[in-house]
Amino acid sequence: MIDVGMTGLSVRHMSLEYRVAGRPPIIALRDVSLEAEAQEFIVVLGASGCGKTSLLNLIAGFLHPTSGEIRVGGKPVTSPGADRGVVFQRNALMPWLNVLHNVELGLKLTGVPRDARREIARRNLALVGLADFACSPIYELSGGMQQRVGLARALTCDPVMMLMDEPLGALDEFTREEMQVLILDLWARSHKLIFMITHSVEEAVFMATQLIVMSPRPGRIVQQFRLDFGRTYLETRDARAVKSSTEFIEMRENVLDIVRATTR
């Protein structure tokens, strides 16, 4: 096992039960363990209801495990914090703030002076290609652009890790592929640990350095892969070539079989 030390993510023997009064508890996660170094790209894949969102919410600190322990950068997770940026499936941007104000909100709340936070926010907007939209209202942007604002916002507090729950789930195929490479670029540039959930096997295989396949009832990890198609892309800058290579297709079919087996 790798030593994640003071920088990575460590989840040890974690279980989560949802207790609803008058019904037997739902075991959402049972004995989940995973370790990742800083700068890894973790992708979680699995059938609906296998506990992916629950796992993300636990790492983000929105939920507390029934048993087990989570550490990020060596520190136990007890509540949400600015060291873990979150990108939500339905972006969760604030419609009363314009693009720039959304992106700088976290810095404003933590007391960063105006000029300093503006500069950081503008830099992050430029990173996601939205420099020209700083003053637009959120509701005038397309879904893909809103999701980019969500990315820029999560980056702005300079977290150790980024948590993304199906960030591309609501996008069309073309925008989705654009966003995949955008996220890979952000990841390579910012040296952050990323934890991303997706339903797309191809996306998972393409982006992950550590691919985790989960299975439902009870939610658990059934298989882990170490991959490097994302790094290959970053070297060659040709996503189509990567995705149509024999190794990629083999791996994709292999993972697909495993996911299919878990839903049977």
């Binding site: 983000a60 929105f62 939500f88 999560a154």
Partner: peptide, 20 residues
């Protein structure tokens, strides 16, 4: 999700109330 977003940007509870 909106409240969670603010919390994971370092907002305190009162700030979530006022700003979200």
């Amino acid at each position: 999700e909106m409240k969670h977003a603010a919390l994971s940007m370092g907002a305190r509870k009162v700030q979530v109330l006022l700003h979200v």
